[in-house]
């Protein structure tokens, strides 16, 4: 679906997973100004090590999502909702091919950036350091090649919110933990 900055087909449609996000990492159609990349995990950063599998990048993706919708004093976050299961299922969907490619590329960059800066992988950082790196991505203070940092964060944010507030049939929102957080309404017509 496209970005809904107007009343469009679906009033309740996707805002962050818009057409731009769906296409933004298509190898044939890179972001304006970005060099073409030869594979999802690569880029022209000189130390490309070829294609990274989803399994390779999953811990990093999960770690980022767990900071975007964290478990904290307000209540559970995507961790309790089952973000790992959700992401694996969502990114296996052929319709999400471009999203998967983009998130893989972003995760590789994030993992390497953490290693370079702190000598530790992203998943090993403390929350404050993780948040600091995410903040730099959001603010565009870093210039990774082959993907737009803000778009990467926003796509993961959209996926995190899907995992938190979507129908549990997709593998997230375990025990309706997200729906309970927002007031206990069972949103799925199937269930209520």
């Amino acid at each position: 679906m496209s970005a809904f900055d107007r009343r469009s087909l679906l009033l309740g449609g996707a805002t962050l997973l818009g057409g731009g996000a769906l296409l933004s990492s298509c190898p044939k159609d890179p972001e304006p100004g970005a060099p073409a990349t030869k594979d999802a995990g690569g880029g022209d950063d000189g130390d490309g090590d070829g294609q990274m599998s989803l399994d390779d990048v999953m811990p990093t993706l999960v770690a980022v999502c767990e900071r975007l919708v964290p478990s904290d004093d307000l209540g559970p976050g995507v961790k309790e909702a089952g973000i790992d299961t959700y992401l694996r299922k969502a990114l296996a969907d052929p319709r999400m091919k471009a999203i998967k490619s983009m998130t893989q590329r972003g995760a590789v960059w994030v993992a390497r950036a953490a290693k370079k800066e702190h000598g530790k992988w992203f998943v090993e950082l403390d929350d404050a350091a993780k948040d600091a790196l995410i903040t730099r991505l959001v603010k565009g203070e870093v210039k990774p090649k082959g993907f737009t940092p803000l778009a990467f964060v926003r796509v993961l944010l959209a996926l995190s919110l899907e995992a938190f507030l979507g129908d549990p049939r997709h593998g997230g929102n375990k025990d309706q933990v997200g729906w309970k957080f927002v007031g206990g309404i069972t949103w799925s017509g199937r269930q209520g």
């Binding site: 997709h170 017509g189 199937r190």
Partner: peptide, 13 residues
């Protein structure tokens, strides 16, 4: 149409 799965109906074409 009983279904109200937001992900499937509103976010996936």
């Amino acid at each position: 149409f009983e279904d109200r799965d937001e992900i499937e109906w509103c976010r996936r074409d």
